[in-house]
Simulated scan of single mutants.
Amino acid sequence: MSSTALLDKSDPPAAGAPPEDRKPRRNFTPWVLLLPGLLWLILFFLVPILTSVSASVQTGNFDDGFKLTWHWANYVDAVKPYWRQYLHSGIFSVATTVLCLALGYPVAYFIAFKGGKWKSLLMALVIVPSFTSFLIRTIAWKTILADNGFVVRILNDLYILKITSKLGITVGTHVLASPGAVVCGMVYNFLPFMILPLYTSLEKIDPRLLEAGNDLYCGTFQTWRRITLPLSMPGVIGGTLLTFIPAIGDYINAQLLGNANTGVVGQSIENLFLRKTDGYPVGSAMSVIMMVGTLVLVMMYIRKAGTEDLI
């Protein structure tokens, strides 16, 4: 019996209706399954964004209340006095992303190709620190980078701090309360976000491709450049995005490990929201600028890097 006959038998037309008038049944199951996720996005993503946009063009204070007056000058007030904070946020997030990639790629490569039966344990060691509070992990770096700690002592003995101080990375013979300390804390906190997608991408590479490269007289570096790196690019793109996006909005590391000259946008937003009675509109404007700016940068990066292999 043909497939058409089976279809006609399983879905007979209504009585008296010609076969060509049959209407396909609508399947609402996908929509029902999507409903919880859609509600979650509406309540906790769309509504907060619209609230921030609305608050960014309001005027008033806590005592008299805020009113929607379409005061677009709030965006000017959110940029001019805080341009250094935007600059610091951009520099710290880019530096964190680059360092995480430089440190995370060799780790992911080793686990994927050399880990053997220890792969699961090694990946667990990468993830386990994330089980501790983000705040506690950042505070721990105050002890690690303390002036009387072994890290600063070794850097001083090697005269490295003299070089980093001239470059503006550290301050004198101190590592704490410096841009370098902020970046160190951010790299430590966000490194797992880089390693995980890199490992997933490298794990999918067929080892026989690397053997073929060696058979074709490619050296280790050439094999990595021509085979491993192109095939691992989805992990590189995913890892850089997962690192850059939270890093550009982070302010805990700058607040605990930095100084008055390393302020970032998040600190200014917190100050406007919590310590000024009329700071809500300008703080909301800064939040909107950060969201839109980050979205534009990410879209440009994705368009340049390509997204066909990200799934």
Rank of each mutant, 00 (worst) to 15 (best):
L68K: 07
L68I: 09
W70Y: 12
H71K: 10
W72H: 03
Y75G: 10
V76P: 01
D77Q: 14
P81F: 07
Q85W: 07
L87W: 11
H88A: 04
I91K: 13
V94P: 01
A95C: 14
L99G: 03
C100V: 10
A102W: 07
Y105P: 10
Y105G: 00
P106H: 12
V107K: 05
I111S: 07
I111E: 09
A112D: 11
K114V: 08
G116Q: 12
K119M: 00
S120I: 11
S120K: 14
S120Y: 02
L125R: 09
S130V: 11
F131H: 00
F131W: 15
T132R: 06
T132W: 10
S133C: 00
R137V: 08
I139N: 03
A140Q: 03
W141Q: 02
K142M: 15
L145V: 08
D147V: 03
N148W: 12
V151F: 05
I154E: 09
I154D: 01
L155M: 15
N156S: 09
N156D: 12
D157T: 11
L158R: 04
L158M: 13
Y159Q: 15
Y159T: 12
L161A: 06
K162F: 07
K162E: 15
L167G: 10
G168V: 12
L176D: 10
A177C: 03
A177L: 11
A177F: 15
P179Y: 08
G180K: 06
V183Q: 07
